[in-house]
Design a protein around this nucleic acid. Sequence first.
DNA 1: TGTACATCAGTGAACGCGCGTTCACTGATGTAC
DNA 2: TGTACATCAGTGAACGCGCGTTCACTGATGTAC
Lengths: 260, 260
Amino acid sequence: MLSFVATALDLGKSGRVESKAKTARQRAHDEIAAEILLAARTRLTSEGPNNLALRAVARDVGMVSSAVYRYFASRDELLTALLVEGYNELGSAIEEADTSVRERTDVFERWMRACRAIRSWARAHPGDYALLYGSPVPGYAAPQDTITPASRVIIVLVSIVVDAHAAGARPPAVPTVAGPRVGDVIENALAFIRDQGLTDELAPAEVAMRTMMAWTTIFGTVSFELFGHLVGSVEDYGAYFDHVVVRLAGDLGFVPVAAG
Amino acid sequence: MLSFVATALDLGKSGRVESKAKTARQRAHDEIAAEILLAARTRLTSEGPNNLALRAVARDVGMVSSAVYRYFASRDELLTALLVEGYNELGSAIEEADTSVRERTDVFERWMRACRAIRSWARAHPGDYALLYGSPVPGYAAPQDTITPASRVIIVLVSIVVDAHAAGARPPAVPTVAGPRVGDVIENALAFIRDQGLTDELAPAEVAMRTMMAWTTIFGTVSFELFGHLVGSVEDYGAYFDHVVVRLAGDLGFVPVAAG
DNA sequence: TGTACATCAGTGAACGCGCGTTCACTGATGTAC
DNA sequence: TGTACATCAGTGAACGCGCGTTCACTGATGTAC
């Protein structure tokens, strides 16, 4: 799977798909690049993103440190590859979780499975998760290439919300507050969601707002769990996460909300 | 203020308050310790928590690196002091924001100000924030001393919620889901909240659950803003945060929720 | 099919750097009589 | 009030370490004729 990802990346970069079968050398190159990436991810899990050292990765993969430069031009490029691979893996996980629900109108089930997939992936890859959603690595700015992979998660969440909205789900009304209106504050996010098919003119801004909040809460909950902020408060993290996610669905109008 | 904090810490550690005025030497020691801490926090802001180097801090404060060991036994101890000071500063900020509302029954206003104080502090001290709420520093385990300062934020949030609950605020009902019940999953958190004065037997578990979710969403939103995950989606971060926090209040029952 | 040349993978040494921590030391500041 | 001794702050050198990156090199694998 890793070599597949790396191959796909290189194809994307070169843009050439001239000869179906790459040369043996090229294939070897891709495989070893994937091996290096795998070693880097293993290090990531055991040590966190910040102490991730190119030399250590080279050591793990049985190479001398300078040899890694045949595959990645710098440490930053390695980090970028890790980001892209992480986002893509998480994206695949949540997409599969969503499409695994055969009854597409069962938006609640789709929501639950998609959210659980995020948490599962994060727990299985805590180092990658910290790299993607923890404090930014100082001195490193993620390049444009990471945006598309990073969007895959929110696209799945939005598509579920859009389907729910089409089926009549509505978030609760909120009182108007002073200051800019919701629609203006998240204008770009709103445009993005409209692109995903939400054309209803009645409540799209509120739906978008609640979707962003839910997205935030999901990752906030996962981060709190992984970063240790729930120790001593929560006994069963899985059950707690489920309770969170159910309420988020409710706040999006998926399930009937009775007045308390 | 910094020297006050450091003094308080030392008093707490030694336990002695024998002579009201510490010796001149002792006072100088405290002041310089505070100076080192301040330099460390400045470094924190400019470089993030992970590359925080004891040697660099010493350089900033005009000392040779070994001299720092007169004040902190190790880099870990410096980190702990930074954690404690950060949590305490954030705790003071939110407490002041809450108590600044004279009309104590105006729980909505108290809520808004408390939440805004968190975001303001985080933006003013992004390095400290990353240290407290970002990915954990690898190889460092926060000691027991940090728990009490870390709790100050949630205590304020809970106290507002408790007052609101006493005044009749109720979160929306949610459908029962399979698995452990809310009250069992967050048993310890619930006990903690009961200690804060929430004695009503009707809905305490749901209130506690919603409080934890709100707490998570607040910090999730701040983290997303500071860590760059809202770039391109949100135009006005302050207004966005307000919209989030208003909805959290609504989900806690602070403001009347009309069916959509 | 065989040879000559180009391309590439990986080595090993080196550069300059900064790190946390230890240690013997010099002065200055405090304390006891 | 003055002296002798103890305590402490800060210095500077050193230890051993790992880092990212460069560079000239040796072989092996590929390509063109």
